[in-house]
């Protein structure tokens, strides 16, 4: 669980940003950019789309910042906005594309081209497995695995009961395990 990093200056930044200070808001963006863009990327599966969606999320955050309670967790609030923004983008996008966002897994340049190709295929396979999860379960899984939120925080961010968080996470992991079974066996055989 992420704790309030430099809580005192952050509170001051939030209050200044609420009063319209753009530099203070820039400071907050600097602090949370990598967390937010990473979660959005895992939801979208496309780096360019993730950057655009993250920008959209921070714009929404700026507009709605006066209604934010400084005592709450800004990170969780930003995650909520970012997840909603990502889902809006994905919904719009799914109308254009038949399905399956593309994954841009970069092969490790240090290994040989064949290994790099295999590695890239594995990454794409895994990312597509994540993207094929039901939306509600995917959100929970990503906030847990990449957002590193606690169950309680996920429940707050997504506005769902704690029991639902657990059941969705359980379902998502089971689905992934089923999908990745062959991949898994392959991995184990490689190591044997």
């Amino acid at each position: 669980m992420a704790v309030n990093r430099n809580a005192e200056p952050e509170l001051s930044f939030i209050q200044q940003a609420q009063n319209g200070d753009r530099d203070a808001f820039g400071g907050l963006v600097r602090r949370y950019y990598s967390d937010v863009v990473n979660v959005v990327y895992r939801l979208c599966g496309d780096s360019g789309l993730a950057e655009d969606t993250t920008q959209e999320a921070f714009l929404r955050a700026w507009v709605n910042l006066p209604s934010f309670h400084p005592q709450s967790s800004l990170r969780n609030w930003l995650y909520r906005i970012a997840v909603n923004a990502a889902l809006d983008v994905l919904r719009r996008r799914s109308e254009d594309t038949a399905g399956g966002e593309k994954m841009q897994g970069l092969p490790d340049q240090a290994v040989g081209p064949e290994t790099a190709l295999i590695e890239k295929e594995r990454v794409i396979f895994l990312q597509n497995a994540i993207l094929s999860l039901p939306e509600a379960c995917r959100r929970v899984l990503i906030l847990r695995e990449y957002g590193e939120l606690t169950y309680q925080e996920i429940a707050q961010v997504l506005d769902i009961p704690l029991g639902t968080v657990m059941s969705r996470l359980n379902y998502a992991r089971n689905c992934l395990r089923e999908t990745l079974k062959e991949e898994w066996l392959q991995t184990e055989n490689e190591y044997v």
Binding site: R22, F25, G26, V29, R30, Y33, S34, V37, N38, Y41, R42, S47, A50, E51, T54, Q55, F58, L59, W62, V63, Q104, G105, L106, D108, V123, L126, Q127, I130, E145, Y146
Partner: peptide, 24 residues
């Protein structure tokens, strides 16, 4: 899941600069 590579996103300073231009 954690081993999935993360792409190189635009640097935070550039992101903040772009964002500042679009803040309403």
């Amino acid at each position: 899941l954690h081993a999935l590579p993360t792409p190189q996103f635009i640097p935070v300073d550039r992101f903040v600069a772009n964002l500042s231009l679009n803040l309403p």
